[in-house]
Protein backbone atom coordinates (compact mmCIF):
# COMPACT_ATOMS: atom_id res chain seq x y z
CA UNK A 1 0.00 0.00 0.00
CA UNK A 2 2.19 2.81 -1.16
CA UNK A 3 1.03 6.36 -0.71
CA UNK A 4 1.53 6.87 -4.39
CA UNK A 5 2.45 4.20 -6.89
CA UNK A 6 5.67 5.11 -8.65
CA UNK A 7 4.12 4.62 -12.06
CA UNK A 8 0.93 6.52 -11.34
CA UNK A 9 0.00 9.03 -13.95
CA UNK A 10 -2.08 11.69 -12.36
CA UNK A 11 -4.84 11.89 -14.90
CA UNK A 12 -7.19 13.25 -12.27
CA UNK A 13 -5.27 16.47 -11.87
CA UNK A 14 -6.73 17.75 -15.08
CA UNK A 15 -3.50 17.51 -17.06
CA UNK A 16 -3.93 14.91 -19.76
CA UNK A 17 -2.26 11.63 -18.87
CA UNK A 18 1.19 11.56 -20.36
CA UNK A 19 0.92 8.01 -21.58
CA UNK A 20 -2.36 8.51 -23.38
CA UNK A 21 -1.35 11.29 -25.75
CA UNK A 22 2.33 10.84 -26.46
CA UNK A 23 4.08 8.37 -28.74
CA UNK A 24 5.14 5.27 -26.80
CA UNK A 25 8.87 6.03 -26.71
CA UNK A 26 8.45 9.43 -25.18
CA UNK A 27 5.81 8.25 -22.76
CA UNK A 28 8.20 5.57 -21.53
CA UNK A 29 10.98 8.10 -21.10
CA UNK A 30 8.68 10.46 -19.22
CA UNK A 31 7.60 7.65 -16.97
CA UNK A 32 11.19 6.62 -16.32
CA UNK A 33 12.29 10.15 -15.52
CA UNK A 34 9.36 10.50 -13.17
CA UNK A 35 10.40 7.33 -11.42
CA UNK A 36 13.93 8.61 -10.94
CA UNK A 37 12.63 11.91 -9.60
CA UNK A 38 10.31 10.10 -7.18
CA UNK A 39 13.17 7.98 -5.92
CA UNK A 40 15.17 11.15 -5.35
CA UNK A 41 12.27 12.65 -3.43
CA UNK A 42 11.92 9.58 -1.25
CA UNK A 43 15.61 9.41 -0.44
CA UNK A 44 15.72 13.12 0.35
CA UNK A 45 12.64 12.75 2.55
CA UNK A 46 14.30 10.08 4.67
CA UNK A 47 17.61 11.96 4.77
CA UNK A 48 15.89 15.19 5.85
CA UNK A 49 14.25 13.48 8.80
CA UNK A 50 17.45 11.72 9.87
CA UNK A 51 19.52 14.88 9.47
CA UNK A 52 17.02 16.94 11.45
CA UNK A 53 17.06 14.41 14.30
CA UNK A 54 20.87 14.27 14.28
CA UNK A 55 21.15 18.05 14.37
CA UNK A 56 18.57 18.41 17.13
CA UNK A 57 20.45 15.92 19.25
CA UNK A 58 23.93 17.37 18.55
CA UNK A 59 22.85 20.95 19.16
CA UNK A 60 20.97 19.99 22.31
CA UNK A 61 17.43 20.74 21.16
CA UNK A 62 16.58 17.15 22.07
CA UNK A 63 18.25 16.24 25.30
CA UNK A 64 21.09 13.74 24.98
CA UNK A 65 19.77 12.10 28.10
CA UNK A 66 16.99 10.51 26.19
CA UNK A 67 17.81 11.03 22.56
CA UNK A 68 21.29 10.04 21.43
CA UNK A 69 22.46 11.21 17.99
CA UNK A 70 21.06 9.14 15.15
CA UNK A 71 24.57 8.17 14.06
CA UNK A 72 25.19 6.50 17.45
CA UNK A 73 21.95 4.58 17.10
CA UNK A 74 22.84 3.40 13.62
CA UNK A 75 26.32 2.41 14.69
CA UNK A 76 24.74 0.31 17.42
CA UNK A 77 22.24 -1.08 14.96
CA UNK A 78 25.11 -2.16 12.71
CA UNK A 79 26.92 -3.80 15.63
CA UNK A 80 23.75 -5.62 16.67
CA UNK A 81 23.06 -6.77 13.15
CA UNK A 82 26.52 -8.36 12.98
CA UNK A 83 25.98 -10.37 16.14
CA UNK A 84 23.82 -13.43 16.69
CA UNK A 85 21.68 -12.42 19.74
CA UNK A 86 19.61 -9.92 17.75
CA UNK A 87 18.59 -12.58 15.27
CA UNK A 88 17.67 -14.94 18.10
CA UNK A 89 15.34 -12.29 19.53
CA UNK A 90 13.80 -11.61 16.13
CA UNK A 91 13.33 -15.35 15.73
CA UNK A 92 11.55 -15.61 19.08
CA UNK A 93 9.16 -12.80 18.22
CA UNK A 94 8.48 -14.21 14.77
CA UNK A 95 8.01 -17.71 16.15
CA UNK A 96 5.02 -16.70 18.27
CA UNK A 97 3.78 -14.51 15.46
CA UNK A 98 3.81 -17.32 12.90
CA UNK A 99 2.27 -20.00 15.10
CA UNK A 100 -0.48 -17.66 16.28
CA UNK A 101 -1.31 -16.42 12.82
CA UNK A 102 -1.36 -19.92 11.36
CA UNK A 103 -3.68 -21.23 14.08
CA UNK A 104 -5.99 -18.25 13.75
CA UNK A 105 -6.19 -18.78 10.00
CA UNK A 106 -6.90 -22.49 10.39
CA UNK A 107 -9.74 -21.67 12.77
CA UNK A 108 -11.17 -18.57 11.15
CA UNK A 109 -11.33 -19.62 7.51
CA UNK A 110 -13.59 -22.68 7.97
CA UNK A 111 -15.76 -20.79 10.45
CA UNK A 112 -16.01 -17.85 8.09
CA UNK A 113 -16.97 -20.09 5.19
CA UNK A 114 -19.66 -21.70 7.35
CA UNK A 115 -21.06 -18.37 8.53
CA UNK A 116 -20.79 -16.85 5.08
CA UNK A 117 -22.75 -19.62 3.40
CA UNK A 118 -25.47 -19.96 6.04
CA UNK A 119 -27.42 -16.80 6.91
CA UNK A 120 -29.03 -18.52 9.89
CA UNK A 121 -25.64 -19.42 11.37
CA UNK A 122 -24.46 -15.89 10.75
CA UNK A 123 -27.44 -14.35 12.51
CA UNK A 124 -26.99 -16.66 15.45
CA UNK A 125 -23.38 -15.72 15.98
CA UNK A 126 -23.73 -12.06 15.07
CA UNK A 127 -24.13 -10.77 18.60
CA UNK A 128 -21.17 -12.79 19.83
CA UNK A 129 -18.99 -11.55 16.98
CA UNK A 130 -20.07 -7.95 17.33
CA UNK A 131 -19.39 -8.10 21.02
CA UNK A 132 -16.06 -9.92 20.95
CA UNK A 133 -14.56 -7.97 18.08
CA UNK A 134 -14.30 -4.50 19.62
CA UNK A 135 -13.07 -5.89 22.95
CA UNK A 136 -9.61 -4.46 23.37
CA UNK A 137 -7.46 -7.52 22.92
CA UNK A 138 -4.81 -6.44 25.36
CA UNK A 139 -7.31 -6.61 28.22
CA UNK A 140 -6.78 -10.37 28.01
CA UNK A 141 -3.04 -10.19 28.70
CA UNK A 142 -3.45 -10.72 32.46
CA UNK A 143 -5.76 -13.66 31.87
CA UNK A 144 -3.36 -15.19 29.36
CA UNK A 145 -0.50 -14.80 31.82
CA UNK A 146 -2.51 -16.53 34.53
CA UNK A 147 -3.50 -19.48 32.42
CA UNK A 148 -0.39 -19.94 30.29
CA UNK A 149 2.41 -18.29 32.22
CA UNK A 150 5.02 -16.06 30.64
CA UNK A 151 6.09 -17.68 27.43
CA UNK A 152 5.34 -18.73 23.92
CA UNK A 153 1.94 -20.23 24.73
CA UNK A 154 0.67 -16.97 26.17
CA UNK A 155 1.77 -15.05 23.08
CA UNK A 156 0.15 -17.58 20.79
CA UNK A 157 -3.13 -17.54 22.72
CA UNK A 158 -3.35 -13.76 22.54
CA UNK A 159 -2.53 -13.65 18.86
CA UNK A 160 -5.05 -16.37 18.00
CA UNK A 161 -7.82 -14.75 20.00
CA UNK A 162 -7.29 -11.35 18.46
CA UNK A 163 -6.46 -12.12 14.84
CA UNK A 164 -9.33 -14.59 14.60
CA UNK A 165 -11.88 -11.78 14.23
CA UNK A 166 -10.50 -9.74 11.34
CA UNK A 167 -9.84 -12.91 9.34
CA UNK A 168 -13.30 -14.28 10.14
CA UNK A 169 -15.08 -11.10 9.10
CA UNK A 170 -13.16 -10.81 5.86
CA UNK A 171 -13.90 -14.44 4.99
CA UNK A 172 -17.62 -14.00 5.77
CA UNK A 173 -17.71 -10.88 3.67
CA UNK A 174 -15.83 -12.52 0.82
CA UNK A 175 -18.08 -15.58 0.77
CA UNK A 176 -21.28 -13.52 0.83
CA UNK A 177 -19.96 -11.23 -1.89
CA UNK A 178 -19.87 -13.89 -4.64
CA UNK A 179 -21.44 -12.60 -7.82
CA UNK A 180 -24.99 -14.00 -7.71
CA UNK A 181 -25.19 -14.33 -11.50
CA UNK A 182 -22.10 -16.51 -11.53
CA UNK A 183 -23.42 -18.57 -8.64
CA UNK A 184 -26.80 -19.09 -10.26
CA UNK A 185 -25.23 -19.90 -13.61
CA UNK A 186 -23.07 -22.57 -12.01
CA UNK A 187 -26.11 -24.01 -10.30
CA UNK A 188 -28.12 -23.94 -13.53
CA UNK A 189 -25.35 -25.86 -15.27
CA UNK A 190 -25.54 -28.44 -12.54
CA UNK A 191 -22.03 -27.98 -11.15
CA UNK A 192 -21.70 -30.16 -8.06
CA UNK A 193 -21.46 -28.40 -4.71
CA UNK A 194 -17.77 -29.03 -4.12
CA UNK A 195 -16.89 -27.79 -7.59
CA UNK A 196 -18.96 -24.68 -6.98
CA UNK A 197 -17.07 -24.14 -3.79
CA UNK A 198 -13.57 -24.60 -5.19
CA UNK A 199 -14.19 -22.98 -8.56
CA UNK A 200 -16.39 -20.06 -7.57
CA UNK A 201 -16.74 -19.31 -3.88
CA UNK A 202 -13.12 -19.72 -2.89
CA UNK A 203 -11.56 -17.80 -5.79
CA UNK A 204 -13.94 -14.89 -5.43
CA UNK A 205 -13.42 -14.76 -1.68
CA UNK A 206 -9.63 -15.01 -2.05
CA UNK A 207 -8.87 -11.27 -2.18
CA UNK A 208 -10.88 -10.69 0.97
CA UNK A 209 -9.12 -13.52 2.73
CA UNK A 210 -5.80 -12.06 1.65
CA UNK A 211 -6.75 -8.64 3.02
CA UNK A 212 -7.85 -10.25 6.28
CA UNK A 213 -4.54 -12.06 6.55
CA UNK A 214 -2.54 -8.92 5.88
CA UNK A 215 -4.44 -7.00 8.55
CA UNK A 216 -4.11 -9.91 10.96
CA UNK A 217 -0.37 -10.19 10.33
CA UNK A 218 0.17 -6.59 11.39
CA UNK A 219 -2.02 -6.98 14.49
CA UNK A 220 -0.27 -10.22 15.42
CA UNK A 221 3.11 -8.49 15.42
CA UNK A 222 1.79 -5.70 17.62
CA UNK A 223 0.47 -8.26 20.07
CA UNK A 224 3.66 -10.28 20.10
CA UNK A 225 5.70 -7.18 20.87
CA UNK A 226 3.18 -5.96 23.45
CA UNK A 227 3.19 -9.28 25.28
CA UNK A 228 6.98 -9.24 25.37
CA UNK A 229 7.05 -5.65 26.51
CA UNK A 230 4.39 -5.77 29.20
CA UNK A 231 4.87 -9.15 30.81
CA UNK A 232 8.39 -9.91 29.68
CA UNK A 233 8.03 -12.89 27.39
CA UNK A 234 11.35 -13.34 25.59
CA UNK A 235 11.65 -11.52 22.27
CA UNK A 236 12.26 -8.10 20.74
CA UNK A 237 9.86 -6.28 23.08
CA UNK A 238 11.59 -7.62 26.14
CA UNK A 239 15.03 -6.67 24.89
CA UNK A 240 13.80 -3.11 24.30
CA UNK A 241 12.75 -2.91 27.95
CA UNK A 242 16.03 -4.44 29.11
CA UNK A 243 18.04 -1.94 27.08
CA UNK A 244 15.99 0.89 28.50
CA UNK A 245 16.41 -0.18 32.11
CA UNK A 246 20.16 -0.60 31.57
CA UNK A 247 20.22 2.94 30.14
CA UNK A 248 21.66 1.67 26.86
CA UNK A 249 19.83 4.22 24.81
CA UNK A 250 21.41 3.70 21.39
CA UNK A 251 20.68 0.01 21.77
CA UNK A 252 17.08 0.71 22.75
CA UNK A 253 16.54 2.91 19.71
CA UNK A 254 18.31 0.43 17.47
CA UNK A 255 15.96 -2.31 18.69
CA UNK A 256 12.92 -0.10 18.11
CA UNK A 257 14.13 0.49 14.57
CA UNK A 258 14.60 -3.26 14.12
CA UNK A 259 11.02 -3.84 15.29
CA UNK A 260 9.77 -1.31 12.77
CA UNK A 261 11.81 -2.93 10.02
CA UNK A 262 10.42 -6.36 10.89
CA UNK A 263 6.88 -4.97 10.63
CA UNK A 264 7.70 -3.26 7.37
CA UNK A 265 9.29 -6.34 5.80
CA UNK A 266 6.33 -8.52 6.84
CA UNK A 267 3.90 -6.03 5.36
CA UNK A 268 5.86 -5.87 2.11
CA UNK A 269 6.08 -9.65 1.94
CA UNK A 270 2.34 -10.07 2.39
CA UNK A 271 1.64 -7.47 -0.27
CA UNK A 272 4.05 -9.07 -2.71
CA UNK A 273 2.58 -12.55 -2.21
CA UNK A 274 -0.91 -11.15 -2.51
CA UNK A 275 -0.10 -9.39 -5.76
CA UNK A 276 1.49 -12.49 -7.19
CA UNK A 277 -1.18 -15.00 -6.16
CA UNK A 278 -4.09 -12.76 -7.07
CA UNK A 279 -2.68 -11.41 -10.32
CA UNK A 280 -5.72 -12.74 -12.14
CA UNK A 281 -8.21 -10.91 -9.94
CA UNK A 282 -9.87 -7.71 -11.21
CA UNK A 283 -9.08 -5.78 -8.04
CA UNK A 284 -5.37 -6.30 -8.58
CA UNK A 285 -5.52 -5.53 -12.27
CA UNK A 286 -7.31 -2.31 -11.55
CA UNK A 287 -4.70 -1.34 -9.05
CA UNK A 288 -1.95 -1.90 -11.56
CA UNK A 289 -3.50 0.09 -14.35
CA UNK A 290 -4.61 2.89 -12.10
Amino acid sequence: MSLDGAATIDARRGTPAAGARLPPGRAGRLLASRRVRDLGLKVSGVLTVLLALELCSRVGLLSRDWFPPVTDTYAELFRLGMGRPLWVEIGRTLNGWAIGLALATLLAVPFGILLGSSPAAYRMSRVVIEFCRPVPSVALIPLAVLVYGVGLEMKVFLIVFVTFWPILLQVVYGVTDVDPVVRDTARAYGLPAHARFFRITLPSAAPYIATGLRIAAAIALVLAVTAELVVGAPGLGQSIVVAQSNAQLPRMYALIIVTGLVGWVLNMAFQAVERRLLRWHPSQRQEESR
Binding site: W66, L221, V222, V225, A243, I256, G260, G263, W264
Partner: peptide, 10 residues
Protein backbone atom coordinates in the same frame (compact mmCIF):
# COMPACT_ATOMS: atom_id res chain seq x y z
CA UNK B 1 4.72 -0.61 10.37
CA UNK B 2 6.37 0.02 13.72
CA UNK B 3 4.26 -1.58 16.47
CA UNK B 4 3.26 1.38 18.63
CA UNK B 5 3.82 -0.38 22.00
CA UNK B 6 7.51 -0.63 21.09
CA UNK B 7 7.59 3.14 21.46
CA UNK B 8 6.41 3.10 25.07
CA UNK B 9 9.95 3.07 26.52
CA UNK B 10 10.89 5.97 24.26
Amino acid sequence: ALPAPALIPF
